[in-house]
Nucleic acid binder design. Structure first.
Lengths: 217, 217
DNA sequence: TCTATATTTGACCAAACAGTTAATCCATAA
DNA sequence: TTATGGATTAACTGTTTGGTCAAATATAGA
């Protein structure tokens, strides 16, 4: 069954991804993964020696998938406002299809912080920053965006996009009580979150240069 | 040892809280909790019959602790801007002392959604909304805050406060690379997040009523 | 067709685990 | 002082779980 070689490995990988995301490393059972893949448990160990190796394979693949989503932010030749809108639209759409990935990630990163460091050490953040700074020099001045506030700004943007999915059970329950549903709320959020950030920046502009808003520069 | 009765139960409870928050229900081990409490494992079962009951005791206590933090928002006679600042200051200070509670909660709520419903069904959100609406009627009109946008606004506020702690390992790694530290970032955040929300609202005001900003009403 | 190799399985194992039990300890009250 | 009963423990039990292994089955090349 050379044909089945890749097929089986693929089936295992997909089943493992599903189960690990759903239950986490601690909660996942090898038997459960085998059942999901429709194969014998021993076969899991044939392809991936241990639970740990299988988990790592899944985790690394998901990491790659996730980081790819940020790339367009640095490549595209869009205005800053367009980029913000683009990001929320794309990122939230991705999370709509993979709502449990954020919780899974944050969890496993607490469980194994050294892994996080390895992943992030590979990313050259300064390069990205310099790139962004060059592309949006005028906007950065206008909105008074300094290097020191990247952490605050970036985590705020990430928070607005990711949090609703991490808190989904709580939010769903709350909204149920108020007569709203989660899905439309998320759909709406793509625009709301972008407005949220852009409005905040615009107000900083006003604060910074109260009289000469669009005339200056 | 009648004296030790309460003391022991308390010790167990504290140890369990620590371990459950750290490892979650699936990752926690009864032996580990016993070790943390400095007692025999059988004693855990003597006071709390099963792991599940012990977990529920811890979970319920933490829920109460967490919800209490929101009470002042509805009682205090502060302006809306003051309330926003108050909330971020208090809430983030609480999370500084209990940084792992959010992850713990979101996780366990995914694991057991029916529990969430039970907790939230007890809260009368509409009452809170009506209360807020009455207290800040003018602000609500000024900033064009409608009932339909509570979910978006509320989750955004929660996100800005909670997310940094849920993503702490990732954020720490990123900032390490940029030469920043997590603790000052959090300290700074108490004000930044409040400004973020307030600025966003002020811009909505500008958008909504471009000419008559402080003169009107 | 026969053989060597890769894939798949059922049965098994040892460790880890939540939970039990019977015996011991110890403060107290009579 | 001693009898009582709650608190505490060491040792144990039954089950679940990750992992192994030898046998069985399928595949491809000669």
């Amino acid at each position: 069954m050379v044909k089945n070689n890749k097929q089986t490995e693929q089936k295992i990988f997909e089943a493992a991804t599903e189960v690990f995301i759903e239950k986490g490393m601690d909660g996942a059972r090898m038997q459960d993964i085998a059942d999901h893949a429709g194969i014998n448990k021993a076969l899991l160990h044939y392809y991936y020696r241990t639970k740990d190796r299988l988990f790592n394979a899944v985790f690394d693949a998901l990491t790659g998938q996730l980081f790819k989503k940020f790339a367009p932010l640095f490549d595209e030749t869009l205005t800053m406002e367009e980029k913000i809108r683009f990001f929320f639209r794309e990122h939230i759409t991705f999370l709509q299809k993979n709502p449990r990935i954020p919780t899974f990630f944050m969890n496993e990163m607490y469980r194994n912080p050294s892994r996080v460091r390895k992943i992030i050490q590979r990313v050259d953040i300064n390069k990205f920053w310099i790139q962004l700074e060059a592309q949006h020099k005028e906007d950065f001045i206008k909105y008074n965006i300094t290097r020191e506030m990247i952490p605050q700004l970036m985590t705020s943007i990430a928070a607005l996009s990711v949090f609703p999915f991490m808190a989904k059970p709580v939010i769903t329950s709350f909204m149920e009580k108020m007569g709203y549903a989660f899905d439309p709320y998320i759909e709406e959020r793509k625009e709301y979150a972008a407005d949220f950030v852009i409005n905040m920046l615009k107000q900083r502009e006003t604060d910074h240069k109260p009289k000469k808003s669009s005339t200056e520069k």
